[in-house]
């Protein structure tokens, strides 16, 4: 962990709202001003900026008014990663969930701070884990450090209810929120968390693992032990049960996807290994 984790590519993201605020950045802002893309034309008296006179519009006006071009300001946004640290995140199938989450956070921290966006991190189990909390920072080193701390964290909580508190902590201006979890929560909690984050641009990142569904063995005896302390259960795997199992898992993910789309974006499935390019494609809507 002493080595600086270098990610191959940046995560490219487009906020779905026009940012406000007085911090210049890389995203389209709601306000005019600066060297951004063309926004509109206003009378000269409203924006007395002779450098941006729009000659064509001025000549076209039958009332001989004078017009000035306005351009969008480029604004910075805040990128937040909300990490579920309930014990189910300790699951280790073909990949380690926490390693995936850590890689995602490191890449996100680097990508956000590189273009001047703030990066904040909240990790929650039943409550917010304050020792992992990172207030939004533009410091590249600070963000990377927080991501590294997260990768070394041990998920132990019995629930992810702290995410509701995390949602109220980041209330305010719209932010880009990556909600990283395996979403093995009660349906009511999912609803509450999405409702609490409704004001933000939420990107659900679903940590999945082939070992949980597609890579299940056809035959055999498995004793499953619940990571969140719900006991153990012996399961005799056989093709019929495996089919039912995969169907139930797909149904769960489909339900989650419906819910997430209703609150903004489709979920991104993070499994086996973290690929920043795939996340970028997902975020850019490709």
């Amino acid at each position: 962990m002493s080595e600086e984790p270098r990610t191959g590519a940046d995560i490219l993201y487009l906020p779905r709202w026009r940012a406000r605020g007085n911090r210049l950045g890389a995203h389209r802002g709601r306000d005019a001003g600066g060297p951004g893309t063309f926004k509109d034309q206003v009378p000269f008296l409203r924006e007395p900026d002779a450098r941006r006179l729009d000659l064509r519009a001025t000549l076209r006006d039958p009332f001989e008014g004078t017009y000035v071009r306005r351009f969008e300001a480029r604004k910075a946004v805040e990128v937040w990663a909300l990490i579920d640290l309930s014990a189910s995140m300790r699951f280790r199938g073909t990949a380690d969930r926490m390693a995936l989450a850590g890689a995602l956070c490191a890449s996100l921290a680097a990508s956000a701070t590189r273009i001047g966006d703030g990066f904040g991190l909240i990790a929650c189990d039943a409550a917010i884990r304050e020792e992992l909390f990172l207030p939004p920072t533009r410091s590249r080193a600070g963000a990377a450090l927080a991501a590294r701390r997260l990768a070394g964290a041990v998920p132990a909580g019995a629930s992810a209810a702290g995410l509701v508190a995390a949602a109220s902590r980041i209330a305010g201006r719209p932010k880009l929120v990556f909600l990283v979890s395996d979403y093995r929560w009660p349906a009511a909690l999912i609803e509450r968390v999405f409702a609490g984050l409704a004001f933000h641009d939420v990107v659900p990142v679903v940590l999945a693992d082939p070992a949980e569904a597609e890579a299940l063995p056809e035959w055999g005896l498995v004793e499953l032990e619940d990571l969140e302390g719900a006991g153990t259960r012996l399961v005799l795997m056989r093709p019929a049960l495996r089919r039912r199992w995969i169907a139930a898992e797909q149904e769960r993910l489909a339900h989650l996807a419906r819910l997430a789309r209703r609150h903004g974006r489709a979920p991104f499935r993070l499994a086996e290994r973290f690929d920043p390019a795939a996340l970028s494609r997902h975020l850019l809507g490709a």
């Binding site: 300790r90 395996d182 093995r184 004793e223 499953l224 032990e225 153990t232």
Partner: peptide, 13 residues
């Protein structure tokens, strides 16, 4: 028996 850690037993059919 070997125990396989599992995220959510309630989701097992």
């Amino acid at each position: 028996r070997r125990r396989a850690a599992w995220a959510d037993l309630a989701a097992v059919p």
